[in-house]
Amino acid sequence: MKQRNPDIDMNEVVISIRDLYKSFGPNHVLRGVDLDVHKGENVVVLGRSGTGKSVLIKIIVGLLYPDSGTVSVLGQDVSHLNSAELRELRMQVGFSFQSSALYDSMTVGENLAFPLRRNNKKISNDQVRRMVDIVLDAVGLSQAVNQMPAELSGGQKKRIGIARTLILKPQIMLYDEPTAGLDPITSTEINNLINEVQRRFNTSSIIITHDLTCAKETGDSIAVMQEGKFVAKGAFDEVFRTENDLIQSFYQYNFIQ
């Protein structure tokens, strides 16, 4: 189990979500979500598939808009930002997609350099190359710089996806199912990488997962989502002592596994 990060600043909230609702037609996905993420904290959002976990982080980064409620990121209300302000905010928030979402017409190096060049017109080629080397080194894939995404394994794609978000030096990381579809060894490597990113880049994170091992190894605190709202929040041990049926079946299933 992960040791709680001693550098968490409980006085500084970087993401604050209050009374958040979101529906898609008749499907009520989020039904009154409240969540605080403190500076330096890794918060794991655990829940079954289709409970609205990914929708939650897409709202945080402004890819979706809530029906009601507020989402404040680094002190700014996301739903009230204009496109320029949203772009500024997004540079502070890294988003690692479940599918990695690498640009498949570009090499790994170009994938990493792309957001950097787009957001900094004056950056020199040498600086770009140096930054690419740094983030590739951070995810342990320096040798992959000239490879195409199609040539990478699932775990390598996840790492490159994380590296691409790190290149903009975000303060916040959002991981959508970082270990989905990976074998246990690769999953452990990704979990270690998430912790390494937290230590080395001093990021605060939300990790969306249904993998209890991932939750245990990466979370400073855990929030369990059921039917569009949180039914338990706190440290791993605290949460899994509660009597909720979903939490107990999660625990038993993973124990059997």
């Binding site: 897409k58 980064v61 890819l63 772009r87 500024e88 997004r90 540079m91 928030v93 988003f95 997609f97 479940q98 599918s99 979402a101 690498l102 640009y103 498949d104 792309f114 957001p115 787009r118 957001n119 691409r164 978000t165 903009l168």
Partner: peptide, 15 residues
């Protein structure tokens, strides 16, 4: 690009 979330990835990279 849309169904593999590459367009969303551009959006969240402030592109």
């Amino acid at each position: 690009m849309k169904v593999t979330e590459q367009i969303d990835a551009m959006e969240v990279s402030a592109i």
